[in-house]
Write a protein that binds this DNA or RNA. Structure first.
Lengths: 168, 168
DNA sequence: TCTATATAAATCGTATCCGATTAAATCGCA
DNA sequence: TGCGATTTAATCGGATACGATTTATATAGA
């Protein structure tokens, strides 16, 4: 029995005054759009930095996840990144072909593929390309709070989405 | 001369204690990753809802932007959505082929294409598909604050990115 | 043991994003 | 007036995301 303070309204707070011709549905009030467009902005901010390293954003994130814990399977790596093998496999193959990691079938269970960073890959992560962006974000002290809050809403959403698609 | 409280560190707050084998670089501390994964989560939460309407998320957002202000050019629509014609054109063509909007060259300036919602398109937006998600987000009172903060960091990032690529 | 089921990764088709380029129309200015 | 520079969309190629399917391997139970 859900009862939120902002109940009733789209994925945005209510505003009965309709400045526009629709029903007060302004893109700028959508939280999903703020997240969506902030994600685009991050991608663009990272691009010139990662271009120098020959990495895309997703490739970079995958490398960071691997540096956190090495020798993961595609599955566990995917859990951390919220991605599945259909997205991950091509990315990992690309990174392998560039010499940043290795993919190996697990001898104990040939269904699984284990992924390990190479020294070159580890070196790349240690360059810490994201460092340059902290100032550009301009949140100051708020940084950790926002990070936590956004992660929380993500987890809430995923849980709700899962719950909604429960099997018969 | 940038001096933020969290200066020095990746796009994440500093933590000298290295729980992992890398250098304290944990994906869970990256703001960019929180945003990235929250965006994936929103996409998945919206999917079952929008599937019923035969829309993708980006298509839906474009329709909302149009309902805010009709008869926009591809360019101004793109400014609102932070997208350019290379992304927008195929999406708008699809929506046109489905009868939700119309694309017309502006007689006064044949370079521009003006986009208008059809009655069917307007009806679709009025169904307000995002409404079901407010509770799932689970932020309560915090909702507008988070929305504002994320929009702010997006604008900061975009400004910084632009500034960095100033032409000679 | 033998086979039905389950699981992990990979493959495939569709829809974004985005940089780079192209094509068409307009503008600037001698 | 005329032509080079600018502007606006559209096109093209590469890299994600993701649902659906396929392939290979492992497991369970008769």
């Amino acid at each position: 029995m859900p009862t939120s303070p902002t109940a009733k309204g789209l994925d945005a707070p209510q505003s009965s005054s309709s400045q526009t011709e629709n029903g007060g549905r302004k893109l700028s009030n959508f939280l999903c759009f703020a997240i969506y467009s902030a994600n685009l902005a991050f991608g663009r901010a990272y691009k010139p930095i990662l271009d120098k390293l020959g990495l895309t954003y997703t490739q970079y994130v995958a490398m960071v996840a691997l540096s956190e814990e090495d020798d993961q399977t595609v599955g566990t790596l995917g859990e951390k990144l919220f991605l599945e093998s259909n997205t991950l496999t091509p990315i990992l193959k690309k990174l392998e072909s560039e010499g940043y990691l290795q993919r190996r079938r697990d001898p104990a269970d040939e269904r699984q593929v284990r992924v390990t960073l190479t020294p070159a890959g580890r070196k790349l992560v240690e360059m810490d390309p994201g460092a340059a962006l902290t100032d550009a974000i301009g949140l100051g002290d708020e940084f950790p709070v926002v990070q936590q809050t956004v992660a929380q809403l993500r987890d809430n959403l995923l849980r709700a989405t899962q719950a909604g698609s429960e099997k018969v």
